[in-house]
Design a binder for these strands. Sequence first.
DNA 1: TGTACATCAGTGAACGCGCGTTCACTGATGTAC
DNA 2: TGTACATCAGTGAACGCGCGTTCACTGATGTAC
Lengths: 205, 205
Amino acid sequence: MDEARTADRKADLRNRLIDAAEAEMAEKGLAGLKARDVTQRAGCALGALYNAVADLDELVMRVNSRTLARLGIALAPAGDATTPEAVTLALADAYVVFALQNRRLWSALFEHRLPEGVPIPDWHQQEHEVLIARIGAPLIALRPDLPVDVLRLRVRTLFGAVHGVVHLALQGRLVGLPEAALRQEVAALVTALVVGARQAGTGGR
Amino acid sequence: MDEARTADRKADLRNRLIDAAEAEMAEKGLAGLKARDVTQRAGCALGALYNAVADLDELVMRVNSRTLARLGIALAPAGDATTPEAVTLALADAYVVFALQNRRLWSALFEHRLPEGVPIPDWHQQEHEVLIARIGAPLIALRPDLPVDVLRLRVRTLFGAVHGVVHLALQGRLVGLPEAALRQEVAALVTALVVGARQAGTGGR
DNA sequence: TGTACATCAGTGAACGCGCGTTCACTGATGTAC
DNA sequence: TGTACATCAGTGAACGCGCGTTCACTGATGTAC
């Protein structure tokens, strides 16, 4: 009857391990994540890690999963804007701010690669889809005339463009770029793209 | 008097090592580059590598240097276009094509990180600057009214946007995207950005 | 409520591997006379 | 042109380290009677 208690404690440790991994990754980046550091931080023995989780890769995916969830929350208020353009702009700006405030965790989202041949698990893939859909919603409103597959591509292009600018800014080849400047650049970028979309959609030049 | 001969042979081996490293990286990517594979491919002993080059990092930078040079050559014909817009479009398109034809070598350009605290050597940094300047030239023609530091930022934004789209496309989260589609997306992206620039520059909307 | 037994979370030393780099050596090449 | 000597490119076995993962063990927790 009390077997639930042990299960709880097991889940507890598991969470502590994910917490620890998250903290380590936030401090040292994905490449700096070491099994020993994680377990030490979580206050358990090295071996316990493999009782809670299959391997380090799973741990990374759990952390990435959390990061995506937090990103989702950070993007939510953007939906309140009144026009599709404004929504898109707000999404992009929230994305930039999130990336800046979560540099290493955000980078880990894109750096992590599973070993060759191992596919990304469905539950994780789906989390990505949700985000893409969120970004795509206002664009669909903007261009109801376009077929969905073209729109899907456009959404990824928009996302890729914003992502690329932020990525480059955080890489350090462009050190010390102030936050305000980055946000402004991204805003200009998105404005150009979205205005282009509307003009094309309404036949206006 | 014949000491030149030995020096030549030394330089020869060095070049063969860089060739080998380039081939290895093109096949297996930056992370797949191993000292033993390189020397075996170059037909020399493991230790000879360290006679020719300080360490693997230097080898990678030599390869990246070549890749940048080849990229420069690939971009050159774009300068023949007649309007600044057309030049920018041609540059972006040539960039995309180059990236697709040199996936792993192109990725290595951005993946390689020197160990913490070691700065990028000047000669390599400068190669980057040259490319950025090349991309920037038509933009300067487009917006002679803007101060240079704003333009510098804009150039990097444009580059980052294009880069991000290509990067995302090659990552594999977006597998099998046909080349034509990618080129078209990038063309649309750049058109939007460049048209925006001209309109803003001429006081148009 | 006790007692014997089973389970399994948790331990941490040890394993094993990959891999960059070093180092004592050798032999070919070049110099001095 | 020979001969003795010095140099140093090239060799590859060995070093050393980092680090993910395993595994024999232990002790606390839970079950059966």
